[in-house]
Design a protein around this nucleic acid. Structure first.
Lengths: 142, 142
DNA sequence: ATTATTATTGATATTCATTATCAATAAAGG
DNA sequence: CCTTTATTGATAATGAATATCAATAATAAT
């Protein structure tokens, strides 16, 4: 996580902010989990590293990670929020099981291409996107 | 909105629930606005029809409309929820301006096709999906 | 029609996630 | 080492959504 730490450091420096043990621990907990972390999960993982960390600091830090481009905030249509790693992680979208909640990542270059076309046609400068497919996964079909 | 009213009626009947003036007013307010309504907006529009309607009834009713397939709950990645009309409204996805918040609808049959492919490949039964493209709209470019 | 049953309503209390506040603490620079 | 100021954890405050509840209204039975 050296590269990520450097990115965070640089961002903090540029903003006149400080790198603290808590921020480092939360970054570590975040990077070690490639998946789709809700705040409470991240809080638990961070506490495993430093039990004194408070939930408020987790909220504050995940916002910093989002601002400096290491994390991305996302939410399901029902509004449930989660965070995912962005840096050194290919862009991906999500398949979500409506029954068990399982999330599978996928990517599809052609869809990405068409998205660019759509944005162009509507005269938008495309910055990012979000796509989720909902259905029943193979495990839940039976 | 006769068709929509019939759908709601049938749904309520099947569940042993009742069609009330409030529910009818909220449906009317919802149908008259094709766009992307947040709860507070829907509340305001419904109050314009019947000023005695309470916010709790709006929440209860939009949930009913969602259950019977007339509305769809959706949310931006930041978790902000809104509702859109589903029945007799072609499926569409969203272009969202990161600057002014403007939402433009679009549809792209090929993207839909590829989504089906992805679901098939991962052995999912596809039920619905959600896609939003974020960027800067033409108005905000200048 | 009248009445009995029960869903519905609006107001408000409650819950839950997130943010703001604040005194104590700890970085960073001089 | 000292001063300045960002940071922290605990907790209060906020805001969105849901639950509660007594009063009301819709439906069915009489």
């Amino acid at each position: 996580m050296d590269q990520e730490l450097t990115i965070l450091k640089d961002y903090l420096k540029q903003k006149g902010l400080r790198l603290t043990p808590q921020r480092e621990s939360i970054l570590k907990a975040f990077i070690e989990n490639e998946g789709h972390l809700e705040i409470e999960e991240l809080f638990d993982r961070a506490k495993a590293i430093d039990s004194s960390i408070g939930i408020a600091t987790v909220y504050r830090t995940i916002n910093l990670l989002t601002e400096c481009g290491l994390a991305r905030e996302n939410s399901l249509p029902n509004g449930k929020k989660f965070y995912e790693r962005l840096f050194r992680q290919g862009h991906h979208d999500h398949l979500v099981c409506n029954n068990c909640g399982k999330i599978v990542e996928f990517e599809h270059p052609l869809i990405e291409q068409f998205q660019k076309d759509v944005a162009l046609k509507h005269d938008f400068i495309l910055q990012n996107h979000q796509m989720a497919l909902y259905g029943i996964c193979s495990d839940c079909k039976s």
